[in-house]
Nucleic acid binder design. Structure first.
Length: 316
DNA sequence: CAAGTTAATTTTGGTAGCTC
DNA sequence: GAGCTACCAAAATTAACTTG
């Protein structure tokens, strides 16, 4: 499909995306035509033009309507995302127009999402004055968040700080340290043992962060040092919910930041093994771009997060 | 040479008639 | 009934000229 990229950049119109989404919704050219206030042939022709452009059939013509092909499903999904994202622009325009709500876009790690963010949002909700802050949150690994930070799609990241300070494009402050712990389902054979040593881990499948991530490399070197054998069939995942599900359903051993693990333990979802991973403690902190000046709203969010982090480490 | 006007081209949508 | 092709018309955009 050599021309798809070019076509999408140069030729594909918003009108086309509308059409694709409507076709998927109605599965009928005639009804789509009515919805878009055009006639049926116009719909038919526009679809043909898109299909020619992307060089792939997008909808299968059947006796009583249209059904998306595999290609169609993919393109419709992206079209929906774009239309939705564009819809958000309207809300943000209003924010600017009203001149009193500032949007702060945060990027967070799964391990920080569950306890820092709710407190932040609750505090901001509570103040109820006109010069409020609207928060938007994205979750992902550091590899996902840092590019967003660089391109300005997020203003601030709450994530792992690199071990050394290259003193470069990012500015950081440390909030707290988060050790990595091993977690298993309640009633897991290992949780019954009085004494666990590292060799025990070799007997069970593991869930590890994806290769190349900060935590993973730390775990890998720790494992090598303690000669723990990693089962060949281990799961690589940074999806917190997937990990939780797998852990509860199987005898897998998972690695999690302690703060997140505690959350699950408190809810009686998981158990923490009595094992220390001393060299796999992550430094969690705020990260933002050095060259961009920090607007007051972002400054406030940073102050609040620092405050909660302090309370947190004081109470634990 | 910039502003304004006109001509050519492209895009979009419509109708009619046809096939499955 | 549903959709396709062929052909037509209107609108918008772009290119090509004038002109002060």
């Amino acid at each position: 499909m050599p021309h798809l990229d070019w076509y999408v950049r140069a030729q594909l119109k918003l009108r086309h995306l509308q059409l694709l989404v409507a076709l998927d919704d109605y599965r009928s050219a005639a009804r789509v035509a009515a919805h878009l206030h055009v006639t049926q042939p116009a719909v038919s022709k526009m679809l043909a033009a898109i299909e020619k452009g992307v060089e792939a059939p997008l909808f299968e013509r059947t006796a009583r309507g249209l059904e998306p092909t595999e290609y169609g499903v993919v393109l419709v999904r992206h079209a929906r995302e774009i239309m939705e994202s564009l819809g958000n622009a309207h809300a943000e325009f209003q924010d600017i127009g009203e001149g009193r709500l500032t949007r702060v876009a945060l990027g967070v790690l799964p391990s920080t999402a569950v306890f820092l963010i709710p407190r932040l949002v609750a505090a901001l909700e509570g103040e109820a004055n006109a010069t409020g802050v609207a928060i938007s949150v994205r979750e992902g690994t550091m590899e996902f968040l840092l590019p967003l930070l660089r391109t300005g799609q997020i203003d601030l990241a709450v994530g792992f700080l690199p071990a050394k300070r290259p003193g470069s494009e990012y500015k950081t402050t440390q909030l707290y340290e988060d050790p990595t712990v091993t977690v298993v389902r309640n009633g897991h054979p290992l949780s019954k043992l009085r004494k666990i040593n590292w060799k025990h881990l070799s007997d069970y499948p593991m869930i590890l962060p994806v290769k190349g991530s900060l935590v993973r490399s730390a775990i890998d070197s720790f494992m090598a040092e303690h000669q723990v054998h990693v089962a060949r069939r281990h799961l690589e995942s940074v999806s917190t919910l997937a990990n939780l599900g797998v852990l509860q359903l199987t005898d897998s051993i998972g690695f999690m930041q302690e703060h997140l693990a505690r959350y699950f333990v408190n809810r009686n979802d998981l158990s923490i093994l009595r094992l220390d991973l001393p060299s796999v403690t992550m430094r969690v902190g705020l990260i933002w771009m050095a060259e961009r000046q920090v607007p007051p709203a972002t400054r406030r969010v940073m102050d609040l997060l620092e405050l909660y982090a302090k309370e947190l480490s004081a109470s634990s």
